[in-house]
Design a protein around this nucleic acid. Sequence first.
DNA 1: CGGAGTCTTGACCTCTATCAAGTTTTGTGG
DNA 2: CCACAAAACTTGATAGAGGTCAAGACTCCG
Lengths: 267, 267
Amino acid sequence: MGQRVQGTDGGNGEVPSMCPRCVLAGILGEALQDPDSRQLLARLTQDKTSLGCGQTLRRDGEVFQALYMLRAGALKTTTVSEDGSPQVIDFHFPGELIGLSALGTGRYLGLITALSPSALCVIRSTDLEDLSTRYPGVRKRLLQLAAREVGRRERMHQLMLGTRAEVRLALALLNIAGRLQVLSADGLSRFRLPMARADLAAYLGLTPETTSRHLRNWESKGWISTRGREFRVEVPDALQVIASRRIPDGVSVNHTRLAGIGSGLPG
Amino acid sequence: MGQRVQGTDGGNGEVPSMCPRCVLAGILGEALQDPDSRQLLARLTQDKTSLGCGQTLRRDGEVFQALYMLRAGALKTTTVSEDGSPQVIDFHFPGELIGLSALGTGRYLGLITALSPSALCVIRSTDLEDLSTRYPGVRKRLLQLAAREVGRRERMHQLMLGTRAEVRLALALLNIAGRLQVLSADGLSRFRLPMARADLAAYLGLTPETTSRHLRNWESKGWISTRGREFRVEVPDALQVIASRRIPDGVSVNHTRLAGIGSGLPG
DNA sequence: CGGAGTCTTGACCTCTATCAAGTTTTGTGG
DNA sequence: CCACAAAACTTGATAGAGGTCAAGACTCCG
């Protein structure tokens, strides 16, 4: 989503981060032609918020005030279901817009908190309105981004349809790795999850235990290696293979079919 | 979504349907002030497609050509997962826009087919572009609709996080009943599902068998009654109660834990 | 009335949630 | 830099929920 460019920003270089100009430029589009708007762009890129780990950006139900562009770090959006168990609705990674859905209802949905120290650009609703009326292309671009977000969430639904925990987990890791990719020189094969296992599990409707078990299982087969939140995919496409089969080994679907269901590769 | 008004259209009155003018008016907004655009509106409301049960509107990957507004009937969007099992990504009910996500990528996602005889208004991409450039309010409205759709899908994710099949099913029925409500005089307490159990199950990542079992279970408790696809909710809020508890019958969550958690209806 | 498709019911078995310890990692203060 | 405490993660045992296969009942149509 948006234009992503590996960041080397002038300011605080503690964390790898997006070049905010590039991303915002993607949103502003034609507005940039106008020298007058350069000024605004400059203001937007300076107008930032930073959050410590665990700090909250917005709470559930707060009225829409601004769209945020995540520059560095990672966030999560959570709710609490009626029975009290925590639910993770989404994660947010550098280069992504946060708060789009609040454009529809006028209120933020869920509690948005930082998973790690994060930096964000703030695009105030007033500025957004200003820009949108002055430059039609801005709204066109926003519409495109929102539509893309709808598509992303539709694919997320697909992901959740994988009944099997193993499939969901593999798909989610691919998804997250893809979104993190920008920041990693190694592409998909190596990445660091910013969130706890419990968050990942809650995102997928699983328990941390199940999540852990499958990861260890894959590791025991040599497909991946993990060390805490650090991941490395040893067998290229291993995740894809797992993700694409609800059916275990290319072996049986069910009882009375074939003996050793080990559900694994030779190992 | 959109403005919904119970329909009494002049044309073919076989099926209860939305008043297309009202819905389109919600999209077009200010454009309507312009007498010139009335003409376009007239054209859009006439420009319709109708589909027989099972017929397809668009296929996966087709390039974006038009946005559709469903006037009557019901559609589903499906994909096939890599292992060949069918997945239902979404249902579409009267008054809803179809194809928004294709605005982002330029291509439709999934196979869109009719669940029952359906009628749709066609808003060609060219017309859309025309309108959008002439009337900024149109794009603003579309952005709002897209953002709302993002929110809807975020809540859908929440729904899927209900691990328990019973909870998912109850939430989904509430969701669908709500979207169907416009057409039913009895509100939420009585409705007819347009889709087969198998589709509903595939939408939720369940099997038809499990779906059926839970429905019959609720029926045996007198909470609902069903006859084929016809539903009636006998105990008001029964679905809400089911939906809000992962915890079964006021009994235990698990062995050795808690005597009576209540939280259930009288059995 | 018959036949196809849809829905229900049953038996069985796998998978995942749950509870309960361990173990490792992370963060903090000495 | 080490020691300690608090999280986070892993591992194990167990049972309940849901998937799978199979067959029967019901519906809808022609």
